[in-house]
């Protein structure tokens, strides 16, 4: 599998990272060498192997249905690059 520039642009779009033409070139080279390394796995037959679902041999622990969090709007908004007293504020979403 070799990654071309178009594919990389598409992935970058999915990952919401802008890449310019100059970057794409070196990214293509780097990613292809990494994938060449990764693709060593292809030589291994894993047809009958179950994928690992968890390292821990236990079931998901649950908590009681209690309200013990929230009500900390100031804390939540404090680090925001742009906010008002009540909301996070972001540039308009163009649908």
């Amino acid at each position: 599998m070799s990654l071309d520039k178009e594919k990389i642009k598409h992935i970058a779009k999915l990952a919401r990272i802008s890449v310019d033409e100059a970057n794409v070139e070196s990214l293509t080279k780097d990613l292809n060498s990494i994938f060449k390394f990764i693709e060593q796995l292809e030589e291994l037959n894993t047809d009958k192997v179950e994928p690992l679902s968890s390292l821990l041999n236990q079931s998901l622990r649950s908590r009681k249905d209690q309200i013990n969090d929230g009500g900390i709007r100031e804390k939540i908004l404090k680090n925001s690059p742009k906010e008002n007293e009540e909301f996070f504020v972001v540039p308009k979403v163009v649908e």
Partner: peptide, 23 residues
């Protein structure tokens, strides 16, 4: 349910904006 699926904030309808939000 009283609290959210993965956090302890309230699910009550009609609260002030961002007032039922945990980290």
């Amino acid at each position: 349910s009283s609290s959210k699926l993965f956090s302890g904030s309230s699910t009550k309808f009609g609260a002030k904006p961002n007032n039922q939000v945990s980290l």
